[in-house]
């Protein structure tokens, strides 16, 4: 099953249900894909967390951010589950730092999965205002990596 093809209608229905019922969280499992729709205190929109596989525990202490970063227009997200690296090799200067100006296509991160290195390129030129991942830590599919404005 292709987990990228997440059923948007299903998530939308869950989000509406969340609103209707005034619940703070709904989690369902469907065909090996687990979707949790949760309302963060003080946030207007529900935040989605994806977890690969039914048995995977939520292992990354990923941010109960009080803002919806995934919806930020300058967000760069991870195309896959993997490990994020901020530099081309251990000990080297990181690809980017907060405040840097970047050009479209410039490498921002490397995401490794199954020993496959995936350089993540800047989708647009701009200034790096936030870096949201830690070197060597796991990232989820769709997880915000950086904000470029």
């Amino acid at each position: 099953m292709n987990k990228e093809k997440i059923d948007k209608d299903m998530i939308r229905a869950l989000a509406e249900l969340l609103d209707e019922t005034r619940l703070t969280e709904i989690e369902i499992e469907h065909q090996g894909l687990r979707v949790r729709v949760a309302r963060q205190p003080g946030a207007a929109a529900p935040v989605m967390h994806y977890a690969p596989g039914a048995a995977a525990p939520a292992q990354t202490a990923q941010p109960a951010a009080s803002e919806n970063l995934a919806a930020h227009p300058g967000v760069v997200t991870s195309p896959m589950v993997g490990t994020a690296y901020l530099s081309p090799e251990p000990g080297a200067t990181p690809f980017i730092a907060v405040g840097d100006a970047v050009e479209t296509g410039q490498t921002l991160f490397i995401i490794e999965a199954m020993k496959t290195m995936n350089p993540i390129a800047a989708p647009r030129s701009g200034k790096v205002v936030r870096i949201l991942v830690t070197d060597g830590h796991p990232v989820e599919f769709g997880e915000p990596l950086a904000i470029i404005e």
Binding site: N2, M80, G82, I111, N118
Partner: peptide, 11 residues
């Protein structure tokens, strides 16, 4: 193919 699919070509 999507990056997550390409990673499986490792195997």
């Amino acid at each position: 193919i999507a990056a997550a699919e390409a990673a499986k070509l490792s195997f």
